[in-house]
Amino acid sequence: MSKVTFAVIAATGAATGAAATAALYSLKKETPPPTIATTATGPPRPAPPPALSTAHTPYSVAQKAPVDPSGIFQYGFPGPVADLRPAHSLTSSYDRRTRNPTWVAEHITPQSLSENNADRKHSVFVEDVSIPEMFRAKLKDYFRSGYDRGHQVPAADAKWSQAAMDDTFALSNMCPQVGNGFNRDYWAHFEDFCRRLTKRYPSVRVVTGPLYLPKKEADGKWRVNYEVIGNPPNVAVPTHFYKVIFAEDGVPGGKVALGAFVLPNAVIASNKPLTDFEVPVEVVERASGLEFANKLEQARRKRLCQDTMCSLIVKEYKERQKSFGKNQS
């Protein structure tokens, strides 16, 4: 198709449930402008100059250009810097501006979920000291904020090792999430859905992260509006969250069932079908500025919700506490 338009849910929920408006993302095939690629580095984080070409087109053959904009790099590279965090149970990239992760990737298998070598009571929430202090999310930011410290990779997915579970408790794996009705309910059921996929697929990879989507206001204009918690204000509260799921058949070069979902950071009724939040992966890419499957050939792709049933098994939160521990996500 030369032009396809998709609707992204772009409103927070009211107390009675998840309200929604539509933010349209056009996927018209266009020639992208040239970009400069920079390589993000994890700790230790030296600041090498970016890989920029020094070849410039002279404004005249005989005269050298009178300016050198790239000379600013002699004082350091301004950024943005993506703080990569490779850990036992996850790999993530951190957004210093919002003090939230940009994306967090995990890998779950039937074996990883069957092993039970960790106890949540031995894990504690910690600040990520690998991130410079001035850009770091702080424990005090969440104190009395009204939001949960919402795991992007849940602790229940890392029971195979205490170190792996501990890794999920760094604030660089957290975002402020609405508690009752979302983090402790619908979002938790969604995480359980991802785990249950391992009953059908031997390898499941999940990328999770926040979004900050526009909402149409009374004057007809679209604006991005989100809260910032902390005193002074430090951590942005996402309007939405996404998950991009790669359910692999376990065969090298085999088929991959691909699914993408966008959920509002709001109370969602437990009987809301998960498929109501399904979107093409391109919608998440355009909304986030990220690319998830550009190296996955179309011939290898399957739509997850056509290959398996995308539905939740709703459990009361008290029952989840018995299975996975208090405040699991």
Results as ranks from 00 to 15, higher is better:
12 T>E: 08
14 A>P: 00
22 A>E: 14
26 S>A: 06
26 S>K: 04
33 P>R: 08
34 P>K: 12
42 G>M: 01
42 G>R: 00
47 A>H: 12
52 L>P: 02
55 A>G: 06
59 Y>W: 09
60 S>V: 07
62 A>N: 09
63 Q>N: 04
73 F>E: 15
75 Y>C: 02
77 F>R: 14
83 D>H: 14
83 D>G: 13
84 L>T: 00
87 A>I: 07
89 S>T: 03
94 Y>V: 02
95 D>Q: 00
96 R>Q: 09
114 S>I: 00
116 N>C: 00
117 N>I: 06
117 N>R: 04
128 D>I: 05
130 S>C: 01
133 E>R: 09
137 A>Q: 04
137 A>R: 05
141 D>H: 04
142 Y>M: 13
146 G>T: 14
150 G>F: 03
153 V>G: 02
154 P>Q: 05
155 A>Q: 15
156 A>K: 05
158 A>Y: 12
162 Q>P: 08
162 Q>F: 08
171 L>W: 10
172 S>L: 09
174 M>V: 08
177 Q>Y: 15
186 Y>W: 12
187 W>L: 02
187 W>R: 12
187 W>N: 07
191 E>L: 02
194 C>P: 01
194 C>R: 01
198 T>H: 11
216 K>I: 10
221 K>I: 02
222 W>R: 06
224 V>E: 01
232 P>Q: 04
233 P>Y: 09
234 N>A: 15
236 A>L: 05
237 V>Y: 06
245 I>P: 01
248 E>I: 15
249 D>G: 00
249 D>C: 04
251 V>F: 05
251 V>P: 01
251 V>N: 03
252 P>M: 00
257 A>K: 00
259 G>S: 04
270 S>K: 04
275 T>N: 14
277 F>Q: 03
278 E>D: 03
279 V>N: 05
280 P>Y: 11
281 V>H: 15
297 E>W: 06
298 Q>V: 10
300 R>S: 08
302 K>L: 08
303 R>Q: 03
304 L>C: 13
315 K>C: 14
322 K>S: 03
323 S>W: 11
324 F>G: 00
327 N>H: 14
